[in-house]
């Protein structure tokens, strides 16, 4: 099923996947996925384990090569080098992508340098300030609680001002307050014109944030709809689709 363009915000797609396929040996994990997200769109991708959600996200991030199809970001193919498309992507994984032997400042300064920001040290300090971690700037990631680590990971994902944010199970292990803080931050970014694709098992945490929900099953879309009603009205349909 192809996601319906009219469900998204008006305007050009910031990220677009066409005919995405991926096989691991004989196992076809993605079987021709189309998707798009425009500024302000927050697409939740849900489905059971093994549906291909994380594979899809890694392909959208440019970390994994698709067996077929193409990803375009800001209208450009997602290349391997220093393309505009790559600069536009931020990834918030369930892992922090931070080095345990470096301090938060060093980690974020390194990230800022990779993205060619003009004043990496200042960018790192500002990102830590925004994440409420200025007082922990000299700490190593291993010394942080799960919630603080997630805030540091968010700072890393957003340091270069991405136009497209990809999130893989972002609410895992966060307490209620930390999850709400993350939702508030993401809402603000969506309001500022970010496009978001979020892979999650925890729809309850993400429901208030997303504008569309797409269900992935066996490597294909089986549903794609705007988030119009309450979670309680969506869940029975979702459970019926995945056979729970």
């Amino acid at each position: 099923m192809t996601p319906s363009p009219e469900l998204g915000h008006p305007g050009p797609a910031l990220i677009e996947g066409r005919g995405l396929r991926r096989a691991f040996g004989r196992l076809q994990v993605l079987k021709g996925i189309d998707l798009s997200a425009a500024a302000g769109d927050a697409l939740a991708v849900v489905g059971p384990n093994g549906a291909g959600k994380t594979t899809l996200l890694r392909i959208l991030a440019g970390i994994m090569r698709p067996s077929g199809g193409q990803v375009r970001v800001l209208g450009e193919p997602l290349g391997r080098g220093g393309s505009v498309a790559r600069r536009a992507i931020g990834l918030l994984s369930h892992q922090s992508l931070l080095y345990d032997d470096l301090t938060l400042t060093e980690n974020l300064t390194f990230a800022a340098r990779l993205y060619g920001l003009p004043r990496p040290g200042e960018a790192a300090a500002a990102a830590l300030e925004d994440a409420g971690l200025a007082d922990r700037a000299g700490d190593q990631p291993r010394k942080l609680s799960r919630g603080l680590l997630q805030r540091a990971a968010i700072a890393r994902a957003l340091i270069h001002g991405p136009r497209v944010l990809l999130l893989d199970e972002p609410f895992t292990a966060l307490d209620a307050a930390a999850a709400e803080r993350l939702r508030a931050l993401l809402r603000a970014r969506l309001g500022a014109g970010l496009a978001m694709v979020l892979v999650t098992h925890d729809l309850a945490e993400a429901w208030g944030l997303v504008t569309r929900v797409a269900v992935l099953l066996g490597g294909r879309w089986v549903a794609d709809e705007s988030r119009s009603g309450a979670l309680e009205t969506f869940l029975p349909r979702y459970h019926a689709l995945i056979g729970v």
Binding site: A61, G62, I63, R80, G81, G82, S83, R86, R87, I89, L91, S93, Q95, S96, L97, L98, Y99, D100, D101, A111, L114, Y115, G116, P141, R156
Partner: peptide, 19 residues
Amino acid sequence: TVERENGALDGLLLAPIPR
């Protein structure tokens, strides 16, 4: 092995830098 910690290798591969 240092890149394996916290999925840091993904952070490197994600960046707009030539392999």
